[in-house]
Design a protein around this nucleic acid. Structure first.
Lengths: 221, 221
DNA sequence: TAGATTGTTAATCGATTAACAATC
DNA sequence: TAGATTGTTAATCGATTAACAATC
């Protein structure tokens, strides 16, 4: 292992940019699927739903992967972004909580192509054990530690009811998971160094309702 | 209807604050359920997972609903936030696409208590019609316009595959829906005045992967 | 060379934070 | 009154945007 010199220090990519890189990655994949091999920042920005100034600024944090006067090579830029995000190889993922939502997540077909691989489905409910969901056998929640160890799992998905989510998170952290995607409508507390992102239906709907309410009261749009 | 004077002009609440109001609402509900009637900004901030300076700043956009030296009345603040968001009454919602995810959404029990009411489940697949999901009969997608008209629906949820999402969005907009929650992994284009929020599993996981990758390379946390 | 488009700069805008005066 | 806690100010930080020099 070589020492890191100032020159190859990890570039500090702004969080807002990090959140958009996956969107660009998807847009590039879509363009590639259409047989498009080169695109301008304007075209890619449109496909990604942002403006081109923002796109170019975002890409500038990664390096100079375009050609002035020409644009970007779709496949090349796609690879560079995938490498920056870290999805050129698959990340093993465990899903805990195989209710309606867990089912939907397990059946989500895009995992593999987008850099993830579901290595286990876990649920505390014995009635579910040995059942297959999306071709994977549901196992007891207590198998968590073993699965994390054997598969080097760093990312966990929580789709249990709110009351159980903190316990699941604690067990995940104890087992060595350091990134959690939480679908339970509750605030998780985790130690420093563990990342939590949440996906919350009610919150999204309420944000829409706020704006909808204002529209209804006659403001110009 | 009285004219709006400069004094009662609609306050302009920053978008970042709007996105946190639902979190505060939920935290207040949880505190109330625990029998807590008064709380400080510090206590509420902890329950909501933010720092207290941000919480107080956020609340200041709504008005002065606390008491210096004392804190906030939980029920009173809860009501004021609910009123500001616009969820003191229920918003009618339609869900289009009753696959795995649509099932999970339809079965989500928190709709009613959080300001929403599912008035219809729609799917283009005839095989699903007349089936009941979460006690609601699945109807043909072509019933959309009628349902929106009869129930005054302003908010639509899209849980169809990516390739069908733009069509669904177009039909929703044409029918008069002006707020869309999109679970399909695709960029929707909609006319000005229509709000779209997206929930995207792959994007969330990729954001986690980016940070996870950096942790793995030995940066201090 | 002329036209096109990137990558970067600098200005602007919005969000966060700490500190504290106001006030219960 | 003394202690506690809000609501607001002002400084800082980060994100967005437009414009354009660099360069294919």
């Amino acid at each position: 292992m070589t020492a890191r010199t100032p020159t190859d220090a990890v570039r500090d990519i702004p969080e807002a940019t990090v959140a958009r890189l996956p969107v660009y990655l998807r847009a590039l994949t879509a363009l590639g699927d259409q047989g498009i091999t080169t695109c301008s920042s304007e075209a890619l920005a449109t496909a990604a739903g942002v403006n081109s100034a923002k796109l170019r600024k975002d890409l500038s944090y990664l390096g100079s992967y375009g050609t002035r006067g020409v644009g970007y090579d779709v496949d090349y830029l796609r690879y560079q972004i995938a490498r920056e995000i870290g999805v050129t190889q698959d990340w093993p993922v465990v899903i805990v909580g195989i209710g309606n939502l867990g089912h939907a997540l397990a059946n989500f077909s895009g995992f593999r192509s987008r850099g993830f691989r579901v290595v286990a489905l876990l649920d505390a409910d014995q009635a579910l054990h040995e059942q297959q969901v999306a071709g994977i056998v549901v196992r007891p929640f207590d198998d968590l530690e073993q699965i994390v160890r054997e598969n080097d799992v760093a990312i966990g998905v929580i789709s249990v009811p709110a009351f159980a989510a903190q316990d699941v998170a604690d067990r995940m952290v104890a087992a060595g998971i350091s990134s959690i995607l939480n679908f339970a409508p509750t605030v998780l507390s985790v130690p420093p160094g563990v990342d939590v992102r949440k996906v919350d239906l009610s919150i999204e709907l309420q944000i829409l309702a706020y704006h909808e309410q204002r529209k209804a009261h006659g403001e110009p749009v």
